[in-house]
């Protein structure tokens, strides 16, 4: 069973310093773009996997060790992160 991208926001924020839920992530598999919040997150393994809501390809994986966060974004063609107003 998956949850949605909101449920993985904490671990990504810890690694990247940004809120990833509002970012637009484009799938390298099918080309669909959508908010990270709407991706399907599987968090029952040792890491967290986000899959495309359209084709279920893996978009991103993150594993946290006591000292590092390992982020694998090969399933994402791009990640567009909204910036706060200046």
């Amino acid at each position: 069973m998956f949850i949605d991208g909101n449920g993985a926001a904490g671990v990504f924020a810890e690694a990247l310093g940004v809120d990833i839920t509002t970012a637009v992530i484009t799938c390298a598999g099918c080309g669909a773009g959508g908010r990270f919040a709407e991706s399907h997150v599987y968090d029952h393994g040792p890491g967290v996997v986000a899959r495309c809501a359209t084709c279920e390809s893996v978009l991103a994986r993150i594993v946290r060790t006591p000292t590092d966060a390992w982020l694998d974004l090969r399933g994402a063609r791009s990640l567009r992160i909204p910036l706060p107003a200046e």
């Binding site: 991208g5 909101n6 926001a9 904490g10 924020a13 809120d19 839920t21 509002t22 990270f36 919040a37």
Partner: peptide, 9 residues
Amino acid sequence: VRGPIGGWF
């Protein structure tokens, strides 16, 4: 606690 988290919902 850590947050707030999530700006979409």
